[in-house]
Structure formats: C-alpha cells, structure tokens
Amino acid sequence: MHDLLTGLFFWIALGVCLIGMIVRFIMYFKGLSWRLDRVAYTSYPAAGFKGAVRSIYKWLIPFGTYGWRTQPFITVAFFGFHIGAVMIPLFLLGHSLFLKEKLGISFFTLNATFADILTWTVVVSAFFLVLRRMVLPEVRIMTTLYDYFILLISIAPFITGLLARYQVGDYSFWLNMHIFCGELLLIAIPFTKLSHVFLFFASRAQLGMDFGIKRGGMKGTKMAW
C-alpha cells in the first residue's frame, strides 16, 4: 500500500496537479479579452507588468495592503494558515528527502521545531477560519458545504501528518493516510476552488493590469488595488 501511494499514485497526483495547473493557467490568459474585459493588455506592457507585479507582491505581504490592515483578525488567521500551507509541503525535512528521492530536486529544509510550530499554526488558523465561517453572519451566509469540504481536504494532510508525527496509534496507518490525503489534495487543486493556489496569481495580475493600465496606474497612482 505504502509503495503504491508513494509510487504510481504519487506520480498520477503530481502529474494531474501540474498539468492541470499549467493548462488552466494558459486557458485563463487565453480567455482574457481586451474588448470584453475592457483592458488594453498588450498596448501598455510596461504599465501592465508594473501593475500586475505590485498587485501580487503587496497582497502576498501580511498587512501589505489597506485591505489587510483594516481586518487584522482574518489577516493573521489567513497568513497563519497559508504560510504553513505553502512552506510545509515543500520544505519539511521528510518531504524534502522524499522529493530528492523521487524528483532529484530539493529545496532548503525547515528546522524541526519551526516546522512543528508552522504546522500547528496551520491547524489552529484553520480552526479559526472555520469558526469565523460559523460565527460571522456575513461569512456564514455565503458558506456552503463545499467551502467546508475544501477546508477539510486542505487541512487533512496536516492533521494526519501531525498524528503520524506524534505517533498517535498506528504510525504507518497515519503516514499512509497522510500521503493519501496529500495526493488527494494535489489532484483537487486544478479542479476545485483550490485552483486559487495558482489562479490567485492570474486573477491578481489581471486586476493589477486593469488598474495599472486603465484605472489610474498610468496617471501615477501607486495603489496595490
């Protein structure tokens, strides 16, 4: 079972995820239309590029925009969740060794204590994100089961990972579950709302170009939109 999960299933999951992302990314930009979107994307590449980069960059920094600053609670929960959600899969020592073995590439690795803190931060932040969905009427009204499902499959690898990490019960069972959940997540990325992991950049870039070219960027406004 373990071999299957780390072998064939891993390759399928990774392939689906990567190809899916690439295809959707290309489709996104192919679907942009200067006329329908009313943005002269190609006429002002420099202004567009500047707007897009600023728009992405500023929003990636905690409290980097007016929007983040006005709502500190969700900003903390959001970054608590996302920083770990991006760093742990790529830079945890165990993941790093695994990727080295499978793909022959490896990034730097996280200090074990720091990785623990990050992972717990993800779980705790996720808890607050769920709580927020249940408690705040303005969020509750829009929240569907689908939203919880997305949160669940996003958080599942972290919870199973932690269970394995602290060897609660059967270590190999939790490890397999962890790998399975991780691969499920990979496959889900291109087909669900999780597509935002890459479409975030596309969408932000688009709005950045919109404002950068048409709605003020060329008049000298330096907002992060």
Partner: peptide
Amino acid sequence: NTCKSRIRTWLEICAHCGMCAESCFLY
C-alpha cells in the same frame, strides 16, 4: 460568448471569506 475567464475565475475562486463585506458602504 461574453463571460470568459476573468469573470468565471472570479466566481469560481471566490473563497466566500467575507473580507469584502466591510468594504461595501451599502453593507
């Protein structure tokens, strides 16, 4: 014919996070 990737993506990736709520004066 007219609703292409921009708007479709917006509708799809909206995280229903409600951060837009406070920004709206009508809200």
